[in-house]
Amino acid sequence: MKILVTVKEVAEVYDDFEISGLEVAESSLNYTLNEWDNYAIEEAVSFAESNDDVEVVVVSIGPQRCEETIRMALAKGADRAIRVWDDRLTEQSLVSPNVKATILAAVAREEDPDIVLTGVQASDDGFGATGVALAEELGYEWAAVVNALDIGSDSSVASVHRELEGGIEEFVDIELPAVFTIQTGINEPRYASMRGIRRAQGQPLNVKDLTDLGLSESDLDSSIHLLSMNEPESESEVRFLEGTPEETATELSGVLQELGVKE
């Protein structure tokens, strides 16, 4: 069995940040593995550990910078990694879920996995769309917001729990091959071991561009474009308590007492 895990290196903005044009200034960004994808990696790797003949391949669309993040997935136990990048992607103000699904589908067609795991959402752009778009692109079945995954012994059906709102979950049987978008909390992601990290440093990373994947520039055509980026105007009526911790704590205690806390 083969499991393909899509991973994204996401950007987090620092507490103080600057926007320049259509981007957050590079100096205000910190890059890390998307939280949801970390759970997807764990789901794949732990399944591979407890079953025979399971290969885990990770794929990421991203510039060279993200190789460190991809190696983190290798260090945690993935077998191989593919990075897709093309300079033509740099020119896009925004890589839409449709375009990402097209690219990831091209990789998936080459790899022919039984199962694809993605995160529910990327913490930076938060589209929550790429996994299910990818499934439809591939003609795979799918389930979104999966917080329990049980892959049947005959590899033809998986039983999953889908998290709905308000603490309700739905139990669904899904025919394989399928894409599952993984929700946080489904497992306990491991930390990479020192040995894993060392091994990952030496592992080759398969880098592909659009041409390698049989895609052309028109596959990047997107009808959605970023027009502006700004800090949201706050309509907040918050009253900030100022001063040293002792001062703010004293003031807060007064406020709480007025509100009738601990009478």
């Binding site: 903005v13 925004l94 930076d124 752009d125 959605i224 027009l227 980026m229 700004n230 800090e231 949201p232």
Partner: peptide, 15 residues
């Protein structure tokens, strides 16, 4: 919004 609601974006849909 992006980045956990810290940034707001506008997107044009040309379709």
């Amino acid at each position: 919004e992006m980045y956990g609601s810290k940034v707001e974006t506008t997107i044009g849909i040309r379709s």
